[in-house]
């Protein structure tokens, strides 16, 4: 009997310790941030913020690549009693969804100056920074590299292209953007033609990039970090910004987006973190990190593999319309994938 009492005491003490030690602090000098940008890239930035400001960062990370649904659903579920101050999204569509659900509140940071208007919400519900470009990754043994996403439907490349599952991640956004740009009929024809041209489906952009690097396919459509990563590892691939010609639709740029949560427990620290993320220095760090993201502020130093935003012809994108379209085309996409 005595033994059980000891075990019980031990459990109670351990429980009390847990409560005291690992409580998500309210009222202290902290900022709570939920993050959908890959942790390997976002965590160092948040650590720097902590060091430079003395504000403790408490973060929850998510991972799109590994198919988690954590952070967005958590933000939505916590709406009535918000725990987060800031959400750092890896693309602006999620920001639009949160705006429509009334979960975010406007904040126009002084550091948002200089970021082109196309990458911010006009009312200040979210602000974009450090963008990923959707690029073609091409194996270097291919001489006449494709320069447009139309290569996916060109018989010349039949059976030689691969694309990530359009039900997940940035590929979904890309397809939805094409639906908005071209209209449903043309976009559906394009998707159908892709299928007929033998385009294979991979589980993620990273896997697509590996399949091209290993020579199983000639090219794919991925995020620029997937391409830059393989290039830095010395793999036989190159990166092509698609559709840059005069009539071209341009390259799709997906910035990170940062926003303040409505009813945030530490709003002033939240604003400080947003200012920090929107600074040129953060954009410089994200450009040199392995995510190789393209700065949106003019005049930010960047590695040689990247192009300045002013030199890229970018695709016109209406984020609210894309957010809506994304939901609309899910049944079509499921069918297309063959689920």
């Amino acid at each position: 009997m005595k033994k059980w009492i000891w075990i019980l005491i031990l459990v109670v003490v351990a429980g009390a310790f847990l409560l005291w030690r690992f409580r998500s602090g309210r009222g202290e000098n902290v900022v709570v941030v939920y993050v959908s940008e890959d942790r390997v890239f976002s965590e160092p930035i948040l650590r720097d913020f902590e060091r430079e400001t003395g504000i403790k960062v408490k973060a929850i990370y998510d991972t799109e690549e590994a198919k988690s649904t954590g952070v967005m659903n958590r933000l939505i579920a916590e709406k009535d009693n918000p725990q987060a101050d800031v959400y750092w999204a890896n693309e602006p569509i999620r920001a639009e969804v949160l705006k429509q659900k009334g979960i975010t509140t406007p904040y126009i940071s002084p550091n948002a100056d200089g970021i082109p208007d196309g990458f911010k919400d006009p009312e200040g519900y979210w602000t974009g920074f450090s963008a990923r470009a959707r690029v073609l990754i091409v194996n270097t043994r291919v001489h006449d590299a494709p320069s447009s996403i139309m290569a996916f439907v060109d018989p010349q490349w039949k059976g030689k292209a691969v694309i990530a599952n359009p039900l997940f991640g940035t590929t979904t956004v890309h397809i939805a953007a094409l639906f908005v740009l071209w209209g449903d009929d043309s976009a559906k024809k394009f998707m159908q033609a892709m299928k007929e041209n033998g385009v294979k489906i991979s589980t993620s952009n990273g896997e697509s990039a590996d399949l091209v690097a290993s020579g199983e396919f000639d090219f794919s459509l991925v995020d620029n970090d997937d391409a830059v990563n393989r290039m830095r590892q010395g793999q036989p691939v190159k990166m092509v910004f698609p559709d840059q010609g005069e009539d071209g639709i341009g390259c799709l740029l997906l910035p990170n987006a940062v926003m303040l949560i409505k009813g945030a427990p530490h709003p002033s620290n939240g604003k400080k973190l947003i200012d920090y993320l929107l600074s040129k220095e953060t954009e410089r760090k994200l450009a040199f990190a392995d995510c190789a993201q393209i700065p949106l502020h003019p005049g930010v130093e960047m590695p040689a593999e990247l192009k300045d935003i002013s030199q890229i012809k970018t695709m016109e994108i209406d984020y609210p319309a894309v957010a809506k379209k994304l939901v609309e085309i899910q049944p079509f996409l499921k069918e297309w994938v063959g689920y």
Binding site: S24, V32, D38, V40, A59, Y61, E64, A66
Partner: peptide, 17 residues
């Protein structure tokens, strides 16, 4: 609670890239 993840969560979130 924010900031206090577990090892499995951390491994999982580090897996992306």
């Amino acid at each position: 609670p924010p900031g206090y993840d577990t090892f499995t969560v951390r491994t999982f979130t580090l897996m992306a890239n």
